[in-house]
Design a protein around this nucleic acid. Structure first.
Lengths: 343, 343
DNA sequence: TTGAAAGCGCTAACAT
DNA sequence: ATGTTAGCGCTTTCAA
């Protein structure tokens, strides 16, 4: 691999000049610029990003990190795509760290990110207290949170209105006459699990339907837990007539259980899920779901834009972007039209 | 951030000694080692991976690249997980490059990978000719291909037996009595699209069922193309009675069309897909599909193991791992039991 | 067993 | 407008 030195030699200039041409610095004679560019072409020179990163001050390293809880969750795939598109358009690469719901792995990735000289980080923390991320933030790293924030800390954050989404989902089921609606949340330590529960509770209160605390359960945000908890709920003596599932994977797990129990949707059991997927229409039956903007893509996109602003302007007021979810009504909760939008 | 220099100063030794302790070099007195370790702890020192990568010879950079065509395809998510798990277990990070089926983006990512000082690359090339990847390989980079190889080049590769998987899928449909089976392939330039077509063709020949070339179509490996092509096939005067879809996303697209046309599966149209997903059982109806080992996870895992061997032993014979697919029979092709395995 | 010093490829003062 | 030089944080000869 040709180095910047080689280019300098070939063009008969100093390395500084080559560096200037590379970085579009002003005050270079058109002639030298041309000579350097020619040498670059001839040698097929590509700047070494590692060396550049080592030398460049913060904000010019052209690398950002993305820390997510679970790449198997299609929501985070969409977030990733949003992040990647904006980063790529700006000449940045993305170092993806998927901690797979494992707190130890998260910590280890945070160490790696710290020693990879990134310009900034987009992260969905393990939980609201996450001391490791807080330490990183306080050490001066530009950070934007997605999906969940940090307790008591005013950090840039982009997320959906979880309360509202859960409220609308629950409201739909209540309007359809359901009195016993199960809620299967993700991990109890994740703010979104709590906020979604609150929307669920508030809807019950507003509609005067008494709550049965036993129908409210939390798991670990994964497929398996949706499968297991839905089975517990549906095989008890007085089972719910509807289910509100707390995320993508939980919904898929619950569907699997429902089919295994040979229950009919929506006659025996109605279901509304948080998180829509572009193929949710091909599920059995087509799923009624709360869609986050762009299925998550929009969250990644916005977060990255904010991160770039934060990098350029570290003292900027923290941004707090709360996007609106949208209830997509399909067949899994009955043939209701009501007043929510349809796909 | 404390640097290695700081540690050296604190411990009263040279930077070389600290480096030796860090890398578990021999010939260090237990006493010095202890002093250095203590300083490391006190300063909470973490080695800077960027500096290390810049200085280290190939094979010690602790970073590998993963280049994939489409992160929206759950198959590649599983491949990623397999790669990541093995890499992580060995102290390596993974730089993920998703070129989103875009050849220009692939080239650009290849440039980035080259200038990121990676130890090796796992890649699913855009097509078999891919000159950019070939150049990288010839420049001495350790490369393992997944899912598709490079024409005329003996490179390490891990993939599933596409011919066999397609053969079994088609055979199932033929045994069920279907005479007009549509094949919706991915991009024609991708070897797997061709190999799967060949399995489809061979099964027809073996079962003495004439081929209708018009039922064989190729698209772009994405959801939208599955949706569009299946619509073309199913709305023609003499439509097929069964569909064999060439990948994950094509299957989901086809399902969407089938439902939109209000056709019953499997009565009006049977469907078997290449690529199983762990939630395929929750589709409408539960999908009969060709499962790659671990849904793709196993391919990522094996490829990474081979990459590490290749890095350690560059002159090793190229490995060619061909894994067996497995036909998972569910309801989308009728209630057949036959002789294939069931889930 | 340890240290001094060179240098990976680049950028950024500081000179000129 | 261009060159000289120091140095980012580390590893690795070479010497002692």
């Amino acid at each position: 691999m040709a180095s910047l030195q080689d280019v300098a030699k070939k063009a008969g200039v100093s390395t500084a000049t080559v560096s200037r041409v590379l970085n579009d610095a002003p005050n270079i004679s058109p002639d030298t610029r041309a000579r350097v560019k020619k040498a670059i072409r001839q040698l097929m020179y590509k700047p070494n990003r590692v060396a550049r990163r080592l030398r460049s001050p913060g904000g010019q390293k052209k690398l950002i990190g993305l820390l997510i809880p679970d790449i198997q969750n299609p929501f985070y795939v969409e977030v990733l795509r949003g992040v990647e598109d904006v980063a790529y358009a700006n000449g940045y690469s993305v170092l993806l760290c998927n901690y797979a719901q494992d707190k130890k792995k998260e910590k280890s990735y945070l160490d790696i990110l710290q020693s990879e000289e990134i310009d900034g980080l987009i992260a969905a923390p393990f939980d609201e207290e996450d001391p490791d991320i807080i330490r990183l933030l306080q050490s001066g790293l530009s950070l934007v949170c997605v999906d969940r924030g940090l307790k008591g800390i005013d950090v840039d954050i982009v997320l959906v209105d979880n309360f509202q989404g859960a409220y609308e989902a629950t409201e739909l089921l209540l309007k359809l006459g359901h009195k016993r609606i199960g809620y299967i949340g993700g991990m109890k330590s994740i703010p979104s699990s709590i906020q979604r529960k609150q929307g669920y509770v508030q809807a019950h209160q507003d509609y005067g339907v008494p709550l049965d605390e036993d129908l409210i359960r939390f798991g670990d945000s994964k497929h398996e837990s949706g499968k297991k908890i839905s089975n517990e709920l549906l095989t008890q003596p007085d089972p719910p007539t509807a289910l509100f599932t707390g995320n993508n994977l939980i919904t898929l797990g619950a569907l699997e259980t429902i089919h295994a129990l040979n229950l009919k949707i929506p006659e025996d059991i109605a279901i509304v899920g948080f998180d829509d997927m572009y193929w949710a229409i091909s599920l059995n039956p087509p799923l009624t779901a709360v869609r986050q903007p762009g299925y998550g893509y929009e969250i990644g996109r916005r977060a990255t834009q904010i991160l770039f602003r934060r990098i350029a302007e570290p003292e900027m007021e923290p941004a707090r972007v709360i996007l609106n979810p949208k209830l997509i009504i399909r067949k899994s909760c009955g043939s209701a039209q009501l007043n929510a939008e349809q796909e």
